[in-house]
Amino acid sequence: MTKGTGVRLERLTKRFGRVVAVRELSLEVAPGELVAFLGPSGCGKTTTLLMIAGIYRPTAGHVYFGDRRVDPLHPRDRDVGMVFQSYALYPHLNLFENIAFPLRLKRVPADQVRRRVRETAELLGIGGILERRPAQVSGGQQQRAALARALVKEPQVLLLDEPLSNLDAQIRLSARAEIRRLQRELGVTAILVTHDQAEALAMADRVAVFSMGELQQYAPPDELYHRPKNTFVAGFVGSPPMNLIEGEFTGDGFRAGGLRLALPKAPTGRGWLGVRPEHLGLGPEGLPARVLVVEPLGREAIVIVELSGHRLQVLVPEDEKPAPDAEVRIAFPTGALHYFDAKGRRIGPE
């Protein structure tokens, strides 16, 4: 398998009038890697993708594919494939002609077009419906056709803009695995845009978390989860989100209102203490708290408790869930805490 090319963004900036959609973005995607751009809606993910594709011109900064600077190039000279959130199939062409479109533009001989379209369609399991128009097939099939159209010209870089967000929950999981498998098999460099952190963590080699046009953290899923760089990432990655308590670090502990925790090697100054719901323990030991709400999720349950005036979410196994209004004890795991300074930047523990 040929590997795709690496992608490097260098201080990429895009303004629309007053709005800064993307600010000074620098990151590198290794050849054959799948990177997810993760962030809430409107944070500049699509804009970044469209600058890589060549639809938008960067206000400043550069895009490199390998060593080649591509930002002055027309999209057709960049060798990228792209899947749009709306799939953007051509409604007046049947699926075969949709998938064949990039090849026809390259004036590939007709018999080769037929072979390659068939191959790609088979790979995606839509070989049997190529005669139909987009409007006559299901959303999942449209998504596959869009993917086939992006892959048929064997691009160096594959761009996926929320390709799964319009699918039913059931197909979405299998489509995740499918895309990941294809991408590995073909060795194409891929960038996946999503606002769904579970999708990003499940599919990507590395995840770039965006907020308001700025890159927050760029790391493998593990690191994102275990060492979030700031409170935004901490709150955005993981479900239910990390508990963040604003208070004061005292060098040997943390204080927030009535809450007092002894923490050896704690920093000093105002800041945030973070702890994931799944790391909080409900048991005989710990600080006394009162249960406010219990939300069963099936195998687990989210318990919302009040602890010295702070609301915390605790994730417990279903069979250990307490009753509402019960008095419980919360144990803080000293090994799984996160410290952030007053501006939200991670300051420990190392």
Binding site: M82, F101, A146
Partner: peptide, 10 residues
């Protein structure tokens, strides 16, 4: 989107 797709398609 469709027009962008066509441009990316070449």
């Amino acid at each position: 989107d469709m027009e962008m797709a066509a441009l990316v398609d070449g």
